[in-house]
């Protein structure tokens, strides 16, 4: 529990900071932090209970997609400005790097295994974001249908 709390605080800090490095407009910083925190909580809880690489990242990406889309509409920015910061705790950069660095200790098989895991993480996030777009389109479609029937 304590580590969930601490890591969530770190996730908020990371999301806002990376948004600053990517030069995101000021009004998108707080939404990026909130989105990052929510997706990290989702990722963490599922990662503890499932022994899987794909599923926790899929859920993380899904939460980023849904919450990010909501904020992007609310503050009128392109949705990438929220994605960039809030995905930083999930993206597999560190993972890919650490498996490449250990190449001289653990050999090729482990290295390629690690790189493959990094690819799976990236695919998981992509699938999550894709599902969120699909859900969003579904909601939009439903709303426009309601409007027409009125």
């Amino acid at each position: 529990m304590q580590s969930l709390l601490l890591s969530t605080i770190l996730a908020i800090i990371s999301s806002v900071s990376f948004s600053i490095i990517a030069n995101v407009p000021k009004r998108a910083l707080v939404p990026a932090g909130i989105t990052g925190a929510l997706s990290w909580i989702g990722y963490y809880l599922i990662n503890v209970n499932f022994h899987s690489i794909m599923i926790p990242n899929l859920i993380g990406g899904l939460i980023v997609g849904i919450v990010g889309m909501y904020f992007a509409k609310k503050i009128k920015v392109p949705v990438i400005m929220i994605y960039i910061g809030s995905l930083i705790s999930l993206v597999p950069g560190g993972m890919a790097f650490s498996s490449l660095v250990r190449i001289h200790q653990s050999g090729l098989v482990t290295t390629f295994g690690g790189l493959f895991n990094a690819l799976i993480v990236a695919i998981g996030i992509t699938v999550g974001l894709g599902i969120s777009t699909f859900i969003n389109n579904l909601i939009k479609f439903k709303f426009s249908k309601n409007k027409q029937s009125k």
Binding site: F18, I21, I84, L87, I88, V91, P92, G93, G94, A96, F97, S98, V101, R102, A118, L119, A122, I123, I125, T126
Partner: peptide, 21 residues
């Protein structure tokens, strides 16, 4: 090793990998 990975976090292209996919 973990400290090294953490410190290089701003440089590694994790976001680029995800965006490219």
């Amino acid at each position: 090793q973990l400290i090294m990975v953490g410190a290089l976090m701003p440089l590694v292209p994790g976001t680029a990998i995800t965006t490219s996919i």
